[in-house]
């Protein structure tokens, strides 16, 4: 599969990853080689085969509907880059 620099930029945009032009040039042939490997799958006949998502084919069990976790806001926010008054700080998104 051939990829263009625009393809790499589009994928990087979807992935929320900054990719520099130099990096894009380096990664493009690597991705093409990897997709060359992945494209082997196209030749496999999978007519009537159901996709397998979980190896044991079990169903998610239901648990009792009751509160099991107390307030851990302070503990969990202690690892955040920026918090104030119990809120996560992010750059302004509404003008």
């Amino acid at each position: 599969m051939k990829l263009t620099p625009d393809d790499v930029a589009r994928i990087a945009g979807l992935a929320r990853l900054e990719v520099t032009p130099e990096e894009s040039l380096a990664v493009q042939p690597q991705l093409e080689a990897i997709f060359g490997l992945l494209d082997q799958l196209a030749a496999v006949d999978t007519t009537g085969v159901a996709p397998l998502a979980h190896p044991q084919e079990c169903f998610a069990p239901l648990r009792e509907d009751r509160v099991t976790e107390g307030d851990q806001r302070e503990l969990l926010q202690s690892v955040a880059p920026a918090v104030e008054d119990g809120l996560y700080l992010v750059p302004k998104v509404i003008e």
């Binding site: 496999v44 996709p51 397998l52």
Partner: peptide, 15 residues
């Protein structure tokens, strides 16, 4: 469909 779903189907064939 061409990649993820296809891979999950071939995954079943391997299992």
């Amino acid at each position: 469909d061409a990649y993820y779903l296809k891979a999950q189907k071939v995954r079943r064939l391997i299992a």
